[in-house]
Amino acid sequence: MPGFKKQTFMKSVLFKHRSIRKFRPTPIPEEVLRECLEAASRASTCGNMQLYSLVVTRDETLRERLAPCHFNQPMVRQAPCVVTVCADIHRFTMWCEQRDADPAYDNFAWFLNASTDALLAAQNLCVEAEMHGLGICYLGTTIYTAGDISQILELPKGVIPLTTVVLGYPDESPELTDRLPLEAVVHYEKYTDYTAAEIDELWAEREESELTKRLLAENGLPNLAQVFTQRRYVRKDNLAISESYFALLKEKGFFNN
């Protein structure tokens, strides 16, 4: 593909990203899946250490076991490929120890480095997948049930799930999801805090959308912010998830030092 056409195609993929939640049962060809995984392995990484692992689950029985960890969302069973993205200091630690080098990566700083590596790899995986005509969806439920996922996938100490990506050929074509204006997320030179009026302006289009009106009617609430705080991500759940994930971090050895 000539350079200009390739750049145009790449921009089209990035600007037209959709989360796909309905998939055809068509298997992903081995060569396509391998290219996606190779793209993931080319992501930027701390010290070229590649502190992540991608657990690729295609076995139907295993996907069935993983489904409850993702609140039984149908796409976990529908999609032919489920990739659990993990922060992984285990492999690099083993390499160091086998060479009489003293690793010091069992701490929170290196959980953050490994998380960055893992999520960069995940995004490379997703972009490459979409370039091949595949659909993807990130599953935030991974954080909620990371302990159960760790047991099912037999993750050793030093390896912890961060997110999950379902991959497959789309069986739907949803509308693009709206985004906040660029001015909401970009700060030039230094962080410029928002005024109350600016916050109102940045969320105005989303708050006035037909989707928001439907959500308010369905939930019987006066505004979208309360849908988030009272229905989607409520305080008691947030605290419980934080506590369980923090406990798993300790169990997996990320707080030894």
Rank of each mutant, 00 (worst) to 15 (best):
D106P: 05
A40N: 08
I89Q: 02
L224T: 15
T45D: 05
T84Y: 04
L119G: 03
L167R: 13
F15I: 07
A129S: 05
A122Q: 00
E154D: 11
L119S: 05
R179K: 14
E130H: 08
V82R: 08
G220Y: 09
L125A: 01
H187Q: 06
F255E: 14
A129Y: 03
N256I: 15
L139V: 05
S53R: 14
A225G: 13
P222Q: 02
Q226A: 08
F255K: 13
L239K: 02
L211E: 09
N72E: 06
R231V: 07
T116S: 09
A40H: 07
F254D: 06
N113Q: 10
D148V: 02
G133E: 11
E60M: 12
N223M: 09
R91M: 09
E207A: 06
N107T: 04
R18Y: 01
N223K: 08
Y245N: 00
L155A: 05
F9D: 14
C86N: 01
H70W: 00
R231T: 05
A196L: 10
A121N: 01
H90M: 10
Q123M: 04
F228S: 11
I152D: 13
I149F: 00
V13N: 03
Y52W: 09
E38F: 05
V227A: 03
A247M: 06
G168R: 06
L211G: 11
L37H: 05
T141Q: 12
Q226I: 04
V166E: 04
D88N: 12
L215S: 07
M1L: 12
E38A: 09
C96Y: 06
K5I: 15
V165D: 02
T61G: 13
Y169V: 13
A217W: 03
N107D: 04
E183D: 13
I136Q: 07
V186H: 04
P174T: 01
L33T: 08
L139A: 04
D148R: 00
M1C: 12
G158T: 00
A101D: 13
I136S: 07
E183H: 08
V83D: 01
I143E: 00
R232F: 06
K252D: 06
D59F: 02
F111V: 15
P80W: 10
D100F: 09
T26L: 12
T163G: 03
E35P: 07
A104D: 12
P170T: 08
L202T: 15
A67T: 03
N257S: 12
G253Q: 01
L202A: 12
R235T: 02
E128T: 15
E207K: 11
F71A: 14
M10K: 08
A146V: 00
T61W: 07
E38Y: 04
T229V: 07
V185L: 07
N113C: 15
V165I: 11
N256L: 15
W95D: 12
S173L: 06
